[in-house]
Nucleic acid binder design. Structure first.
Length: 516
RNA sequence: GGCGCUGUAGCCAAGUGGCUAAGGCAGCGGAUUGCAAAUCCGCCACCGUGGGUUCGACUCCCACCAGCGCCUCCA
């Protein structure tokens, strides 16, 4: 009954044991805020939100840090192109990022440190590396001397010799092409900070070393990020932090697979794609989102889908696997998600209370004793065990969601078997058992950040008059059905269906739902 | 070229050295329904190809094929 985590550093699943018993520090590489976020930027936060919730559920005290890199060459270029200051641009894009996180229900991040607010620590860390002989100043720049770090390359499993880059535009100042900048001198007109080496700005990787140390300490538990960051970003971060501190930076390195844009062309198959790929612009869009011009802003996606739908979509696959992004795929998981929402309505019909107000155990131990002490519908306890086993195994959210589907089915089956929707047949004991089962669903889903609040009502449904009119139509139709005028009753149902309203005739009346 | 990942039903996707290989979407039967919807039950996979290890592999090893990522822009 212990959690196991896949560690990029060792390429194996390891038992999860925090550096300090009971406490967990997580650092996730956040965005460089120079453009609005796209769906790829949400993958890590969604996954680690679930990781944190699950760890908290398991009794750990978790501190989760997501950094905001608000100084960088890309920010300088973009702000210049837009004719605004770098800090203005950063502020705007940070707000966009925060809005997106909020829409996704990601409210578990404890700290959002900004690079520009960590400048003292960055400069001190750079100085430490120079003092210890791991870095050198050259013409206002400071570079990390890769040759001095015997362990360089251990994360991405590559040797310094194997790197045959040209060293970039600053190659002339570097001792070796693989050396990377800790500090970059400012060109005229660029934003800059004073430093012992003259005015300049931090290199790309140093800010994460400084911020993680500041908030989580020299050695913390989990460092996360996209798979694309393994090299060079995390490799360099490890080099900086570990050479400066003389101890491991993070115990576990977790990397999530990347969201890939999937176009129709990309799906045609290997050969066809190959042939097209050479010259066709569209074919290039079927690839990595970060590079793709086709990756639209995340807020546009949120205009179509509820945050919960996207969360469900991301979590339905194992985090280390790449996910193909397509609206068809999202539509598909959305249909599965609707099964849960229907169940919640069913729950409300039976118990008279909202599923969302159901109090469930917030910790695993509380859940264990609740499961042991209360009478549960058949299979519910098994589903719970399988769910926990899935999550324990490297946060297998895909498997866990499968277990949730089985749990709902067990609950629905119980409702059918006990005729709980017919008040004459529903016994208080059976309702209590049902409620305990629903509580289990709520308990487990909460660890994935699912079903915390009712989904936003579709457009129109929030309009009181619309609801009243639909109630009226349903009532009229009920009269028609009683009078055996089925032709007219069916016509109403068909015509409402054409408008996107589904009617369900139940023993106790007719329910309507508005499709998106 | 170097490092690494993936290949499971029409589609998406978990998973295990050996009972009937989760789950979702789609489809097809059935129960239920005035008919539907919803719900429940049932059906639908020999796990890329070829070898090897083993009493036994989808699961381990090798080769091959296909797709993908990284090798200093990238969550």
């Amino acid at each position: 009954m212990s959690i196991r985590v896949y560690n990029t550093l060792t390429k194996t699943k390891e038992p999860f044991e925090p550096v300090e018993p009971g406490k967990v520090g997580i650092y996730l590489c956040g965005p460089t805020v120079y453009k609005p976020s796209h769906i790829g930027h949400m993958v890590g936060p969604v996954i680690f939100d679930a990781v944190k919730r699950y760890l908290v559920y398991c009794g750990y005290q978790v501190t989760w840090v997501v950094n905001i890199t608000d100084v960088d060459d890309k920010l300088i270029a973009e702000s210049a192109a837009r004719g605004m200051s770098m800090s203005q641009l950063a502020e705007e894009m940070t707000a966009d990022y925060m809005d997106n996180l909020a829409a996704m229900g990601i409210d578990t991040v404890d700290h959002f440190p900004r690079a520009t607010a960590t400048m003292d620590e960055i400069i001190r860390l750079t100085q430490t590396l120079i003092d210890k002989g791991f870095a050198y100043a050259a013409g206002g720049d400071v570079y990390f001397d890769v040759a001095r770090d015997a362990e360089y390359g251990k994360l991405s499993n590559r040797s310094v010799e194997s790197m045959h880059g040209d060293g970039g535009e600053m190659a002339g100042r570097k001792r070796a092409a693989a050396d990377f900048a800790l500090w970059k001198s400012a060109k005229p007109g660029e934003p800059s900070w004073d430093s012992p080496w003259g005015p300049g700005r931090p290199g790309w990787h140093i800010e994460c070393s400084a911020m993680s140390r500041k908030l989580l300490g020299e050695t913390f538990d989990i460092h996360g990020g996209g798979l694309d960051l393994v090299f060079p970003h995390h490799e360099n971060e490890i080099a900086q932090s570990e050479c400066a501190h003389g101890k491991p930076q993070a115990k576990y390195w977790m990397h999530n697979g990347l969201m890939q844009a999937s176009s129709e062309i990309g799906k045609v198959g290997g050969r066809a794609t190959r042939e097209i790929a050479d010259g066709d612009q569209a074919a290039q869009e079927s690839g990595k989102l970060g590079k793709s011009k086709g990756a639209s802003a995340f807020r546009e996606l949120l205009a179509i889908y509820a945050g919960e739908t996207i969360r469900f979509f991301v979590l339905s696959t194992h985090y280390r696997r790449p996910i193909d992004f397509s609206t068809e795929r999202i539509d598909e998981v959305d249909k599965g998600l609707a099964t849960f929402y229907r169940f919640f309505q069913r729950y409300e019909r039976i118990t008279g209370e909202s599923f969302y107000r159901l109090e469930a155990p917030a910790s695993r131990t509380a859940g264990d004793s609740a499961a042991a002490e209360s009478t549960l519908p058949p299979d519910v306890a098994d589903c719970r065990q399988r769910f926990l086993a899935s999550m324990d195994d490297d946060f297998n959210t895909g498997g866990a969601i499968g277990d949730l589907f089985e749990l709902v089915r067990a609950l629905n089956k119980f409702v059918d078997g006990e005729s709980l929707e017919e008040s004459a047949k529903a016994t208080p004991a059976a309702v209590a058992t049902f409620r305990a089962g629903a509580r289990t669903l709520r308990e487990l889903a909460a660890t994935l950040g699912l079903f915390r609040a009712p989904p936003k009502a579709p457009v129109g449904a929030s309009d009181a008059l619309t609801g009243q009119l639909l109630d009226l139509l349903a009532a009229v139709r009920s009269e028609l059905r009683k009078a055996k005028n089925f032709a007219m009753a069916d016509s109403i149902r068909d015509r409402l269906a054409a408008l996107g309203v589904t009617l369900e005739d139940r023993p106790d009346g007719t329910a309507w739902t508005i499709q998106r």
